[in-house]
C-alpha cells in the first residue's frame, strides 16, 4: 500500500470517468443533432448505455472477472436475469395487449 498503488487506483477511476464521459456525450450529441433513423438510434443508445453500465461496474464498483469476485458477479448476473425476465416480460405482455386493443 503506497503512493504508487494510490496513483494506479486513481488512474483507474479517471479512466472510468473518461469512458463514461465519452459514452454519455456521444448519445446526447447524436440525439441533439438528429439525423439517424429511429431503430438505428435506439440500438446505438442501448449499446452505449450497456457499455457505460459495464464501465461503471468495472471502474467504480470494482466488479471484474477475477476468481475472488465470482460470487458478486453471479449475484449481479442473477439479478439482471430476473430483471430481464420481469421487465421484458412486462413489456411483451403489455405490448401484446396494447396491440390487440
Amino acid at each position: 500500500m503506497n503512493d504508487l498503488d494510490y496513483r494506479r487506483e486513481l488512474r483507474d477511476y479517471l479512466i472510468g470517468f473518461g469512458l463514461a464521459f465519452t459514452l454519455t456525450v456521444g448519445p446526447f450529441a447524436i440525439v441533439a443533432w438528429g439525423g439517424l433513423d429511429r431503430p438505428t438510434l435506439l440500438i446505438f443508445l442501448g449499446a452505449c448505455a450497456l457499455v457505460q453500465i459495464t464501465v461503471h461496474f468495472r471502474f467504480f464498483l470494482h466488479i471484474d472477472l477475477s476468481r475472488q469476485k465470482r460470487e458478486d458477479l453471479q449475484l449481479i448476473l442473477f439479478s439482471v436475469l430476473l430483471l430481464i425476465i420481469m421487465a421484458i416480460g412486462t413489456i411483451w405482455i403489455m405490448g401484446n395487449l396494447a396491440m390487440r386493443m
Partner: peptide, 22 residues
C-alpha cells in the same frame, strides 16, 4: 452513490434520450 449513477444511465437513455428522439 455509484448505484444511483448507474440508474441514471438508464434514466437518461430510456426516459430522456429515447423519449425525445421518438
Amino acid at each position: 452513490w455509484h448505484f444511483l449513477d448507474l440508474i441514471w444511465v438508464g434514466i437518461f437513455t430510456i426516459v430522456f434520450l429515447a423519449g425525445i428522439s421518438a
